[in-house]
């Protein structure tokens, strides 16, 4: 589904603080599977997710999403791919404070121009599925950590993406909530969605739902990880 071909990412090129986050990374992400990028902080996992998720452009190399090269696409097309193909779950949730759970969940759907009533109905269905239905009208600041994580997942699912990208999704969760999250990942996989997770949490990369673990260190893939299933 995703293919990276000798991808390099250099931040602040030509400046004194130039920093290479990725060095010639090549990787294939298979559709319908759960892939975990494992590695310590600063290893380049988040940068890799950003590039795959069309949130940043590589300094060199090529990236293919469903056989279509996206490396040099204009920003407008990248935004379209982001909203139709990917659902993002961020490490710090990145829920918009001051808005309700439901208002946060419908945010990615705004640019699609679907009738608001339809989008809200879909959002409520997803929230019910993630056991957040009763909290739909509640402000996100009042949610617990686990509820915030589920709200972030609900938001990632609103546009029915084929690939879910999650960056350190258990970083702010205890073990119980982390297991709950992995159970949701299992459900998504069962629906045929592809999941790409960056994590250095053993509870994540050792979880049975995970198909493949890719080890990243110092901006390089040190272990491509065979399919564990």
């Amino acid at each position: 589904m995703i293919r990276l071909d000798h991808v390099t990412k250099v931040f602040n090129p030509g400046r004194p603080n130039e920093y290479a986050a990725l060095h010639g990374v090549s990787l294939d992400i298979e559709a319908g599977k759960v892939t975990v990028l494992r590695g310590p902080s600063g290893s380049g996992k988040t940068t890799l997710l950003s590039l795959i998720g069309c949130m940043a452009r590589p300094s060199s190399g090529r990236i293919f999403v469903e056989e279509r090269e996206i490396t040099s696409l204009p920003e407008r097309f990248l935004a379209d791919i982001r909203r139709r193909t990917f659902g993002f779950v961020f490490q710090s949730f990145n829920l918009v404070s001051g808005l309700s759970v439901l208002e946060n969940v419908v945010l990615p759907a705004a640019p699609l121009g679907e009738p608001p009533a339809v989008v809200r109905r879909q959002a409520r269905a997803i929230l019910d599925r993630l056991r957040l239905g009763p909290k739909a009208a509640q402000s996100v600041e009042l949610l617990s950590g686990g509820e915030k994580q589920r709200a972030a997942i609900a938001r990632a699912l609103i546009n029915s993406p084929r690939l879910i990208i999650a960056d350190e999704p258990t970083a702010q969760l205890d073990s119980e909530l982390s297991l709950e999250l992995m159970a949701i990942v299992g459900d998504l996989k069962a629906e045929g969605r592809t999941c790409l997770i960056a994590s250095h949490d053993s509870l994540v990369f050792r979880h049975p739902v995970v198909d493949r673990v890719v080890a990243v260190r110092d901006g390089r893939i040190v272990e491509a990880g065979a399919d564990v299933c």
Binding site: L78, A79, D80, R82, R83, R84, F88, N94, P108, A110
Partner: peptide
């Protein structure tokens, strides 16, 4: 966040 969620510059 909005851009990451799929909003483009025009949005």
């Amino acid at each position: 966040v909005l851009k990451a969620l799929g909003w483009d510059t025009a949005d």
